[in-house]
């Protein structure tokens, strides 16, 4: 095992982690402020990716594609919030799960109807397609490095938004006491729409960025959605800081588990069996991590004890 390979895997883990954070931030914000569990968050991720692929195909500009992803996902989010989601705030979680599950069916089949079942491809822009040489002689893809940079910038931007702006004050107040800030004259239903659209835009951005590494297809959102759930359960639901720590933990565990576990088992097993056992265990590693966190802290790392 070479150190260069290990560092590369750590960077891959970071890249997965920051993307999971961008996904999970919207999810945890919506839960923190509105108390809503939104399974359709993965559909917004998919919408962002498809909007980006369509615009990139038409204009050839990756930047325009990212803007389209943000815009399309935010618009879809705002629309869904106004038509469906706002009827669910007072309902119990079971109704929310089912209604948003229904939204997944509608979004997935709608996108399949509009774009077909074949995956689309979103090309990495030429100025980011090559490798970058890092100190120590590591060659790492520039695009993945850019994703890490964008993810960290989003984290910083969210922190600034929540702790230093008027909207951020309202969001924090909404988490603490909904009735009170409504009584103080804040237009609560507009605030909810804005928060939901903000979360949706972040999901769309993540979808577009990841869509350029993987393929853009129907159903791409749900595996990421479930990882994002694991992230916010580990971090504590409603906590942005928890989502950040949880996302990095999950990203690193998943990537390093897939890399190290087969090698670990190869120390005392024959190679083919070690590969099978190692990769099977690695695919379960993040869920085991989640189970351990919950046994120690049932409300997550940064969650308020229920």
């Amino acid at each position: 095992m070479s150190w260069l390979l290990l560092i590369e895997q750590v960077l891959n883990g970071l890249q997965l982690g920051v993307m999971l954070f961008v996904m999970a931030a919207g999810l945890t914000l919506v839960f923190g402020v509105m108390g809503l569990i939104n399974l359709a968050h993965g559909s917004l991720y998919m919408i962002g990716a498809f909007a980006a692929a369509a615009v990139a195909g038409a204009t050839g500009s990756f930047l325009l594609a990212l803007i389209a992803a943000l815009g399309a996902a935010a618009a879809a989010g705002a629309l869904v919030e106004i038509i469906v989601i706002r009827r669910l705030y007072g309902r119990d979680h079971l109704d929310q799960v089912l209604a948003t599950f229904a939204l997944i069916l509608i979004f997935s089949e709608g996108v399949r109807w509009a774009f077909g079942s074949f995956p689309l491809f979103l090309d990495i822009p030429s100025y980011l397609s090559g490798p970058v040489s890092l100190p120590g002689g590591i060659l790492y893809p520039a695009y993945r490095l850019a994703i890490i940079g964008i993810g960290l910038a989003v984290a910083l931007g969210l922190w600034a938004l929540i702790s230093h702006t008027r909207l951020g004050v309202q969001i924090r107040a909404g988490e603490a006491d909904r009735e009170m800030i409504a009584a103080l004259g804040v237009d609560i239903s507009k605030l909810y729409t804005v928060v939901f659209a903000l979360g949706a835009a972040l999901a769309g951005l993540a979808g577009a960025l990841v869509g350029a590494i993987q393929s853009v297809q129907v159903g791409m959102g749900e595996p990421v959605l479930i990882l994002a759930f694991v992230v916010i359960v580990i971090g504590g639901i409603g906590s942005i800081k928890g989502a950040f720590v949880g996302a990095l933990l999950v990203g690193l565990t998943d990537t390093l588990g897939g890399f190290l576990l087969p090698q670990l088992f190869a120390l005392f097993m024959e190679p083919s069996a070690a590969g099978a056992v190692g990769s099977a265990l690695a695919s379960m590693a993040i869920y085991l991590l989640m189970a351990v966190v919950l046994i120690v802290r049932p409300a997550g790392l940064y969650g308020e004890p229920a």
Binding site: I37, H93, I226, F229, V230, V233, M290, L294, P298, A299
Partner: peptide, 12 residues
């Protein structure tokens, strides 16, 4: 756990 945590954990 209970509530939303329970939903997400069974899912996971």
């Amino acid at each position: 756990t209970s509530g939303v945590y329970f939903i997400m954990i069974t899912l996971a």
